[in-house]
């Protein structure tokens, strides 16, 4: 397994983001700790702007993730629409 994870603070604003990640990454494992949620997956985790916006009912910039992030593992690939964690090169990821 090529473990990747994203850990977010467990707070009101982050919960819709956490739920969106769980929705968009159905094979991920969710681990809950005091004050923190850690989502683990094999190979890739994607945070999609559209899904988060659907839950928040407002515009959401993937950079707002900075407010709630605790930790990540993996290579980061960010666009206006998605925030992705992956292993391997960017070219491999885009395939």
């Amino acid at each position: 397994m090529r473990l990747l994870y994203i850990a977010l603070q467990e707070n009101e604003e982050a919960l819709p983001i956490i739920d969106s990640i769980i929705e968009d990454n159905p094979s991920a494992t969710v681990r809950r700790y005091p004050g923190m949620v850690r989502i683990e997956a094999d190979g890739r985790i994607t945070v999609k702007r559209a899904t988060v916006e659907g839950r928040l009912m407002r515009d959401w910039d993937p950079q707002e993730l900075h407010l709630h992030l605790i930790s990540i593992a993996g290579n980061v690939h960010e666009t206006d629409d998605e925030f992705t964690l992956h292993w391997g090169t960017a070219e491999e990821m885009e395939k």
Binding site: Q9, G35, M36, H66, L69, I70, S71, I72, V76
Partner: peptide, 16 residues
């Protein structure tokens, strides 16, 4: 917890 998680949100960027 609060200063820690606030700092840690920066750490995620530092790690990257």
């Amino acid at each position: 917890v609060t200063f820690g998680f606030s700092a840690q949100s920066d750490e995620a960027r530092h790690m990257t």
